[in-house]
Design a protein around this nucleic acid. Structure first.
Lengths: 180, 180
DNA sequence: AAGAGCATGTAAAGTGTTACATGATTGC
DNA sequence: GCAATCATGTAACACTTTACATGCTCTT
């Protein structure tokens, strides 16, 4: 099975938020807002927009506002198919791999009452909890004596850091789920 | 400028730790220990080992131990050049980009008295502190009113999470630097 | 009118994954 | 003997980055 492409869904999410968006504006978004979760250069974006148009996920539109400014930009909007595709993608369960998809999907959820929010948080909570368990067991397996620690100190630190980071993640998710 | 390759340095680090290592053993390492920081398949590893041998960074060796077991494995050891290359790479300052290099380099530091350790931690501390500052300023810029939060709740959460994660990182690094 | 930035697009090169392939060894 | 795994290697494909290229617009 080929690896799932992510870029088209990111573009769908971006357009969905702004109603209509030009390729250039998407490039700017990648330079600022979502650069933490995903990056893409204009050389990727423009051909991808063409493919998505061909697939009927998006269409070119001429926005009513902005009568003559930036006339040379091509604006895109979601089709109903595109909207469905985006929702389906957001609903797909998270897996142990592609860990970064959680933050990316979360980014695209607009309101706190979205039915997508709680499942997403719950999924990530489970993944993070499993990860803490795994890292702790690895730490105990690999570092049974002080000698093991002293001779592989960097490895010891990375494992310790991983446990701390993921535990902090679990706490944040739990707190958030409680307050919702 | 082409993007800096990482795989060869990872292989150098692996070999350096174990004195001598076969390609197959490296594949196993990637399946377990370092999978958090870097991944590589055997299709990448074997050609890379060939390149590194051509460049004089490593040489094939026949380990004294294990007289006849696994005779069909090819073992590699660092040359003095390879050792220098690894040290140079570890000494290269971290940048805002390639964030994951910190954990990877840390993984390859063997002892707590290594002169490489403190600079590495200090560099990452600076990077993380800058990142906290940046994320906080973004949060203030983007979310000035409750309405902004309510209409882009997922984005708000990712930014909040980013700040928390990076702050936790800063605390961990500071604590570690104090105890060393 | 010239230079900087806007806006889009294609081409080439690098990197990584998946698939294909093969011989050797080990266990049943 | 046969299947599974060991161990290595190559080929094809997918994705991303960098470079190349072009026309438009705005400012000085």
């Amino acid at each position: 099975m080929p690896k799932k492409r992510t870029l088209p869904y990111v573009l769908l999410g971006l357009i969905n938020d702004k109603q209509h968006l030009s390729g250039y504006q998407m490039v700017q978004e990648f330079k600022h807002e979502i650069s933490d979760f995903w990056t893409a250069s204009h050389s990727q974006i423009y051909p991808e927009l063409q493919r998505m148009t061909d697939d009927g996920w998006i269409t070119t539109v001429t926005p009513d506002t902005q009568p003559d400014a930036n006339r040379n930009q091509t604006y895109y909007a979601l089709t109903s198919t595109g909207h469905d595709v985006l929702l389906d993608w957001l609903r797909e369960p998270l897996t142990q791999k592609d860990t970064d998809l959680f933050a990316l999907k979360l980014f695209f959820i607009k309101t706190s009452d979205s039915p997508l929010l709680k499942p997403l948080l719950a999924q990530q909570l489970t993944l993070s909890q499993n990860r803490v368990t795994y890292l702790k067991s690895r730490k105990e397996t690999v570092f049974q004596s002080q000698t093991d620690i002293d001779s592989h100190y960097g490895h010891f630190l990375t494992l310790s850091r991983g446990i701390e980071r993921e535990s902090n993640y679990v706490l944040w998710l739990q707190h958030l789920l409680e307050t919702l």
